[in-house]
Write a protein that binds this DNA or RNA. Structure first.
Length: 374
RNA sequence: GGGUAGGUUGAGCAGGUGGUGAGCUCCGCUGACUGUAGAUCAGCCGUCUUCGACUGUGGGGGUUCGAUUCCCUCCCUGCCCA
């Protein structure tokens, strides 16, 4: 028995599954969404806020935390859970995404990545071994393999090279990972090319990872390409029993795309980032609280939402807070979007259980369609 | 009453001493955001028939081929002196 266990059962909805993932810091129901807390905080929210929003697991980041405050410091202070006062499950990303998003600061070779710190320009080195060391010091429940991803516009040869490199790094991560109380997930790459994805699934799935992640999506490809790629991955994985995590996704409608293709876990900065920029997800679709039409609107943000923001405050007040640049705007907006997202996942699980997934998808699609074409 | 510095697109400014002033920052109006270098970024922000054109430098008058610029006069604002 490994550090985590995953029990999953199929549903009557496509490849969708309902499951329970048990970690050293608690069990989570899948399909599930992980709010992103890159720097040992989900921006503007406290662990109490996260609990109130229904959060079961959060994501942290090896690259950011290793630069500041430093992985050893976090370890000395009792590990990431204790440091940030979140006692639920934590998954840490390996730093692979920063190799992508901060590509202009670094250079990739077969052994790893050399880059200039985005904080002070100092030279840093990240390798599969170093990423494992950092994540073990942080003490997360789930450690992600160190990978390389590219955006959809890159030539086939480059995508293939990054994929094969990711496969070699995957084996090195497994060899370097020592803590028995942490799960380690492998990452499937291969861009939007079906044959590359098939190869990557075969290469990564044959390794003894505790879970499998699908990376390299939602980085510029079309929705159609993402769905098609998820179909290829699902088909190639077949009845592999391990938990499946779609990295960096997504929007409300993306969850339906993923879930019906067998995805169990999602993470995304979108709910919290767009919240800080005034965009709120509601039963009426997307609302931008900075728009002039809300300044005199006394109604709650979303009458169907149970969160503190919707319970206590008006749209007019939120619009005011955003215009005034008040810090409370960020917290109230983030609290709502995280609550909305986690409630949506709960509704999805419920719909999978009673067979109403398709009608829920139609309903939510209609809400966002109306908002988009208003 | 005398002196002095000013009056530029919602606000605050830049510039311009005879030859095309629509430039900046706020504010305002929209949009974007997908394993967080993002409480960020982008577009618009005088009018119109908007790839362009027109109007606009406190009001009026004068000189001039041509005035934001030079002259006269009036109005308004800050400061100083009475």
């Amino acid at each position: 028995m490994g550090p985590i266990s995953f029990s999953v059962s199929p549903t009557t909805t496509g490849r969708a599954r309902l499951g329970t993932l048990t970690t050293p810091h608690g069990a989570i129901q899948t399909p599930q969404f992980m709010p992103v807390g890159t720097q040992a905080t989900v921006k503007s929210l406290t662990p109490t806020d996260l609990r109130d929003a229904g959060t079961q697991i959060i994501l942290g980041n090896a690259y950011h935390l290793s630069l500041r405050p430093g992985a050893k410091r976090v370890a000395r202070l009792g590990g990431l859970h204790r440091f940030m006062a979140w006692d639920g499950p934590i998954l840490t990303d390996s730093g692979g995404f920063q190799v992508f998003s901060l590509a202009h600061l670094g250079r990739v070779d077969d052994d790893g990545v050399t880059f200039a710190s985005h904080l002070d320009g100092s030279q840093q080195r990240l390798t599969p071994e170093r990423s494992m060391e950092i994540q073990e010091l942080l003490g997360s429940d789930i450690v992600m393999a160190f990978d390389q991803l590219l955006d959809a516009t890159r030539p086939h040869s480059e995508v293939e090279e990054a994929m094969t490199r990711t496969h070699r790094w995957a084996e090195r991560c497994l060899a370097a990972h020592t803590r028995g109380d942490q799960a380690l997930f492998g990452i499937i790459q291969g861009g939007v090319d079906a044959s590359l994805r098939q190869r990557s699934v075969a290469e990564v799935a044959r390794l003894p990872f505790d879970g499998l992640a699908i990376g390299g999506l939602s980085v510029g490809e079309t929705k159609r390409e993402m769905a098609a790629t998820l179909d290829v991955v699902a088909e190639t994985l077949g009845d592999d029993p391990r938990v499946r995590y779609l990295m960096g996704v997504g929007s409300p409608l993306d969850f339906f795309t993923g879930v019906e293709r067998g995805i169990d876990l999602f993470d995304c900065v979108l709910p919290t980032r767009v919240a800080r920029n005034g965009q709120l997800w509601t039963s009426e679709g997307r609302l931008n609280l900075r728009n002039a039409r809300f300044v005199d609107d006394p109604s709650p943000l979303d009458v169907e939402c149970r969160c503190e923001t919707c319970r206590d405050y008006s749209r007019a007040y939120l619009a005011h807070l955003f215009r005034a640049g008040e810090l409370l705007a960020y917290r109230l907006a983030s609290l709502h979007n995280v609550t909305y997202t986690l409630d949506l996942m709960r509704r999805i699980r419920s719909a999978l259980a009673d067979g109403s997934f398709a009608s829920l998808r139609e309903s939510v699609a209609g809400q966002y369609e109306r908002a988009d074409t208003r």
